[in-house]
Write a protein that binds this DNA or RNA. Structure first.
Lengths: 131, 131
DNA sequence: CTGCTACTTGAAGTGCGGTTCAAGTCAAGG
DNA sequence: CCTTGACTTGAACCGCACTTCAAGTAGCAG
């Protein structure tokens, strides 16, 4: 076997993902094993980078189906660019929303209103977050 | 019946939540009806504010169980303050992460690397996001 | 050879956040 | 009175992202 390939167990350790998750991702078409070491899946080293990207995108709120689509798309794909641009706007909006929420939480931590939900400043903040 | 109370259908319309979701929230202890109009749940107007808060927190990534806990806690509750402070840090971190992801997406939109995942700048960006 | 470990498979199970369904009930309108 | 429509209930179902399980297998040590 090509010893540049990495066993699933090792990929799991290095990526921090469970082996079951890797197999799950394979079924979803997100990654693929290059070969087998006996029964064991063997992956190319680049797979680790791919997994980092997947984890990153997943953490950002992409569904696995979306990620799979992104990974399949060609860079020349205009649709892909548009979708990425759309996602960029979405993420920007989310950043703004979370920033407002953070401010709201910051206030809440030191506010003494009882109940907290009645605090005018807090109510204002909540309205801003959901706006 | 107290005509300051609002029927579930009206609350659903005004909050933008499905009536089924409102009942679900009630089972989870997030809200409660003040009375009934026949069979119909009737809510106090403040419930709308409470729902805005719930929606806001849920959108921010709190689980419903967490939100329920927050809502039950007293403002004098030191644990609550600590938890909110912790959540504030969590949200701050998430804002930072999403900001990096946004930058990474911004680059990706205009980058011509094929495959995109091989672009050094993009790889850098992904590493920054997951760091 | 035996025993062990780390994997293999498909299928079922989990937790979250709900929605949908069937059967029933209430209040109002005609 | 009967119909209509918006609600009621518990239970079942949904999609997502996995995990867990049972039964089996490859490779290696002794």
């Amino acid at each position: 076997m090509d010893d540049t390939l990495i066993d699933i167990g090792e990929v799991a350790r290095q990526s921090g993902l469970a082996a079951s998750a890797l197999r799950f991702y394979e079924r979803k078409g997100l990654i693929q094993a290059e070969g087998r070491n006996g029964l064991r899946r063997a992956y190319r080293p680049e797979t680790l980078e791919r997994l980092a990207l997947i984890t990153c995108a997943r953490d950002a709120g992409f569904t696995l189906a979306e990620i799979a689509e992104f990974l399949r798309a060609k860079p020349s794909d205009a649709t892909l660019r548009e979708r990425m641009a759309a996602k960029e706007r979405e993420v920007s909006e989310r950043v703004a929303q979370l920033t407002r929420l953070r401010d709201s939480l910051r206030h809440a931590v030191t506010c003494d209103h009882d109940p907290l939900i009645e605090c005018p400043e807090f109510k204002q903040a909540v309205r801003r977050v959901s706006a």
